[in-house]
Design a protein around this nucleic acid. Structure first.
Lengths: 166, 166
DNA sequence: GTTCATAATGTTATAATATAACATTATAGT
DNA sequence: ACTATAATGTTATATTATAACATTATGAAC
């Protein structure tokens, strides 16, 4: 799987996808000398259960069934760690979290978010980034983290005619 | 003031800026046959007090001093109306609201947000939009509203050396 | 392997943001 | 004035996130 493989059609082996994400996380933490504890690893796993952003309290619900006394700080602290190391992204428009397929270099995210099924794909298009930097620089603005969240319809939902259900 | 006049330096007449925003709002509502009630107008005014996004509860605090019994729904309903008509934007990364200088045609926002002073400018760069659409289309994704929130440093704070205070 | 400093997690409480549900009042059209 | 609808008032609560302090686990030094 390439990081930019958006909206995988047939043949997306998600078990493999998730396993490799966890392996990458483990390696990255090893290199950085930080600890991917069982709790952090489990939270990362839960985030990677799908390519659909998960809310902190959804994660918490699952954790509660597994550890006695799991509480909001349990999950928020794990998420903070994962965010810091680029292992997950926060989707601001959904107050939710999604796994990052390419945690090595820090980047603001470029996300395609399906309004119908919730499936979310991360882009990393240098030309979008470039267009943003050009425009920002013209305004004298120094770009830190560009955050791009594009609401719309994924190919499957579009083909299924999921215009604006209701 | 042009809509894309980001980070106005000297000579930004904000009273005029705000007044003209309110006039545009009034005209727009008139054309659309919807009512810019005193409450809605007041909330819009408060949002336009500065070019810095305002939280709903900040607005509420001010309203409370002016109307007895102002409560969260008071401000959220006014904001919903203003959002629907493109008169304000929601800044997702700040859970805050900012006036839209160009409410006529609906658009996802492109925002430059200064991490130091909070000043926020709206872009409307067609090339950013185009780059996004190109990239999204390649993934088979139908773009709805692109949301772009760029955290960084405005010219003033950059020149004042506000790197990462602390 | 004990001691110590630090990191991680547990635990309780609460802050900040947002909406639901129903009552009342204002407005526009008749 | 009457009525339908829109807008606002009011109370309660849901959702998301953090503060503050206690406890436990881990790794480094000895």
């Amino acid at each position: 799987m390439t990081p930019s493989a958006a909206f995988m059609d047939t043949g997306h082996d998600h078990d493999l996808c998730m396993e490799s994400a966890l392996d990458r996380a483990s390696a990255l933490c090893g290199e950085r000398g930080v600890r991917l504890t069982p709790l952090r690893r489990r939270v990362l796993e839960l985030v990677w259960v799908g390519h659909k952003p998960l809310g902190a309290y959804e994660i918490l619900d699952t954790l509660k069934a597994e550890r006695q006394g799991a509480a909001p700080p349990t999950v928020y602290r794990a998420l903070d760690f994962l965010l810091q190391h680029g292992l997950v992204h926060r989707i601001e428009s959904l107050n939710s979290f999604v796994g990052c397929p390419d945690p090595l270099k820090p980047h603001g995210g470029q996300f395609l978010i399906c309004r119908s099924c919730g499936l979310t794909a991360e882009l990393n298009d240098h030309r979008i980034d470039q267009a943003i930097r050009n425009s920002a620089n013209k305004a004298g603005f120094t770009v830190g983290r560009p955050m791009i969240e594009i609401e719309g319809l994924c190919p499957h939902c579009r083909d299924a005619g999921e215009g604006s259900p209701g």
